[in-house]
């Protein structure tokens, strides 16, 4: 089975891109499955079900979404293998802009949209920097120049990755993306593979449910801001 991981900020068009991508891959029904990692709620499973695509949704809830992803990805792969998929696509929302749920040797896709502002690519960090392919959506409603500036800013942060423009509504661009993704490696398990980047470090009192504010309640890994005198 092949595995592709897709990440991106909320509402950047991940689900639309994946649906168009699956359409462009032209496979027999049931050959491609999706695992959706989300935080609290998700309605994307409905879109997948409507398209006849087997989907599993998991909610990280109070757990850091990245940690949740890593501790469940191998089970997701086993689900995919047992279901007899040719291809499994994981979709996860990168909520803190630091998240980068990418695994060494597994094709990774980051989806961002043109409307998020031209400097956004420079602010996203590892989620963009470590992606093999950066899919840019919503290009049909901004000017050509802004698309070019946006792509330029992506290359500034991720010089090695490929930038592909996909229209999530018409599917324009999904064909070439599908073609590129066929290179994904076949795997049976992810055991002993490595993440491309560490997940956010966070073992502090607030991780374990503390809600009071003030120094006495702050324990564990902390990072303090430096405030200079005005």
């Amino acid at each position: 089975m092949k595995l592709i991981t897709v990440a991106g900020p909320p509402s950047s068009g991940k689900t639309s891109v994946i649906l168009k991508l699956i359409g462009a891959m032209n496979r027999a029904p049931g050959g491609i499955g999706v695992v959706k990692f989300d935080c609290l709620t998700s309605f994307d499973n409905l879109s997948y079900e409507e398209a006849g695509i087997p989907v599993q949704t998991g909610f990280s809830g109070k757990i850091c979404p990245d940690h949740y992803f890593v501790s469940n990805i191998e089970d997701a792969v086993q689900w995919g293998v047992q279901s007899g998929f040719e291809l499994l696509i994981t979709e996860s929302a990168g909520l803190c802009n630091r998240c980068s749920p990418y695994i060494k040797g597994i094709l990774s896709v980051c989806v961002i949209d043109n409307l998020s502002g031209v400097n956004t690519p420079r602010k996203i960090g590892p989620m963009l920097k470590y992606a093999d392919i950066v899919v840019v959506t919503k290009g049909d409603i901004v000017s050509q120049a802004e698309r070019e500036v946006f792509a330029f800013n992506i290359r500034q942060v991720n010089s090695a990755g490929k930038v592909v423009f996909v229209n999530g509504i018409t599917g324009q661009g999904a064909f070439i993306l599908a073609k590129y993704l066929r290179q994904a490696r076949d795997i049976q398990s992810l055991r002993d593979t490595r993440l491309r980047f560490t997940t956010p470090a966070a073992v502090c009192s607030y991780c374990t449910g503390e809600i009071k504010i003030g120094a006495p309640y702050q324990m564990g890994m902390m990072k303090k801001m430096e405030f200079k005198q005005v």
Partner: peptide, 8 residues
Amino acid sequence: SQNMNFVM
């Protein structure tokens, strides 16, 4: 296209 706008 006609739908395109500047957003910057």
